[in-house]
Computed example of a mutant assay.
Amino acid sequence: MLKYKIDIGDALERIGFNAYKAKTTKLLSQDTLKKVKSDDTNISLKSLNSICMLLDMQPKDLLMYVETEEEKENLKKL
């Protein structure tokens, strides 16, 4: 399972990127902003690219993989 390493919503707000800027620049959708603010990592690679650009970070600075019990069980079945 992917998890955010940092609070993406807060980081975007600190650089002045809010819902209004998302709408006017079209760099991120309103839906994507809602997702990152609720720690939902189910975003597109295009959105991840925009977030990396805005925050001047690499994906590895934003995301980490944490294996869940369900994933461990699925691997055992392979």
Results as ranks from 00 to 15, higher is better:
L2M: 10
T41Y: 03
K34F: 06
V36L: 07
D56F: 02
L2W: 08
S44G: 08
L27V: 01
N74C: 07
E70Q: 09
L62K: 02
K76M: 09
R14H: 10
D56V: 07
T24Y: 02
M1K: 11
K35L: 00
L78H: 03
L63R: 03
L12E: 08
M53Y: 12
L54A: 11
T41M: 04
M64L: 10
K5Q: 11
L2H: 09
A22P: 14
D31G: 08
S50G: 04
P59T: 05
Y20T: 08
D31W: 00
L75E: 08
S38C: 10
Y20P: 04
I51F: 01
V66L: 08
S29C: 05
R14N: 10
D31M: 02
S44R: 12
S47E: 01
N49G: 15
T24A: 12
N49R: 08
E71A: 13
L33R: 13
I15Y: 04
K72V: 15
M64A: 15
E73H: 09
S29N: 06
L75S: 14
D61N: 14
M1T: 09
N49A: 12
L63T: 15
K26C: 06
I6N: 09
E67A: 11
L54Q: 10
K3M: 07
N49F: 12
Y4H: 09
Y4E: 05
L62D: 04
Q58I: 03
L27K: 14
T25G: 03
E73Q: 14
S44N: 08
V36Y: 03
L55G: 05
D31Q: 11
I8E: 14
V66G: 08
K60W: 03
N42V: 04
E13W: 15
K76N: 07
K72D: 00
N18Y: 00
K76A: 14
D39L: 05
T32W: 02
D39Q: 05
E73Y: 06
M57G: 11
M57T: 15
F17I: 02
K21E: 10
M64W: 03
I43L: 12
K77Y: 04
F17H: 01
L33F: 03
A11E: 13
E71R: 01
D61Q: 10
E67D: 08
